[in-house]
Design a protein around this nucleic acid. Structure first.
Lengths: 146, 146
DNA sequence: TCCTAACAGTTAGTTTGCTAATCATGACCG
DNA sequence: CGGTCATGATTAGCAAACTAACTGTTAGGA
């Protein structure tokens, strides 16, 4: 196999694995009334209470319509709340609801347990190497889109 | 940061990067009348002419309804053709059309060029390490779903 | 001041993934 | 032979991502 096709295979493998991860997490998150994406967003709101939707979209590297959609789901489930920003009638601030505030620790532990379970037998050097690679690709993708 | 949260961060990073890769490839594949997923499927059909939809779904690690959709798109675009299997009236065999047959080399080169461009400055040991990790996770995901 | 441009959010419509359920066909066993 | 179960494909409906286009609000410059 040539180096070129190795790289293509690597790309396809990445896609397949991420798809599998999403499936795996979605399946288990359903018990909490969440999906993988919504749980991910929940941790983001928890760490950045009061940020606007646009800022959340930027942080999650997602387009505004996608963020709107995710927040609709979380709001309907009673996890977050949109509040108007005083001084800027365009923007909404997003906060966790009281209920989500109390449940947040449990949800985070649930996510960490799942990640732990999947990566517990992965050598640290593999993890570190892969992270370097991801960062490199991330930078490249970001740089080109500018 | 604890090891637990490092692993969670790694998971989220993987998700973000794969999302970015898909976006990147989709954007460029549009010029060929394709999307990333459809291009990926096209290479699969090219390497396995005449396989059934169920077999393609298994190979691509996708559920049958998803495969149906993807094939609908490729068939509509004139890239593939579904043919009844003689001896089994349930199944369809899938083949590239003549046009796709002649375009296939170009499409493959296009995909390889994109992968090359993204990975050309990635050290081989990083790529190999990440591939090991992906395989390990893949095996774990497959094992648990049984 | 007012016009225009930028920004925040939403709406509309497509793609790609999923699950659950349905339909037709095939296979196997009593 | 006939009934049940398995298989291949589809349909229906949901979730999450995208782009393009729209509404409303703010800011800045002529």
């Amino acid at each position: 196999m040539t180096e070129r096709s190795v790289r293509l295979s690597f790309l396809f493998a990445t896609t397949r694995v991420t798809q599998g991860l999403k499936r795996h997490f979605d399946e288990r998150a359903r018990a909490h009334g969440l999906t993988y994406s919504r749980a991910r967003l929940l941790t983001l709101v928890a760490r950045n209470p009061g940020v606007t939707q646009a800022e959340l979209a930027r942080l999650m590297e997602v387009e505004p319509p996608t963020m709107k959609h995710l927040l609709d789901g979380l709001e309907e489930g009673g996890f977050v709340q949109r509040c108007p920003v005083e001084g800027n009638r365009r923007a909404n601030q997003v906060f966790l609801t009281e209920r989500a505030e109390t449940e947040h620790a449990g949800i985070l532990r649930f996510l960490e347990d799942l990640a732990e379970e999947l990566f517990d037998d992965v050598p640290d050097e593999d993890l570190a190497g892969a992270l370097r690679l991801l960062d490199r690709i991330s930078a490249k993708l970001a740089g080109e889109s500018s």
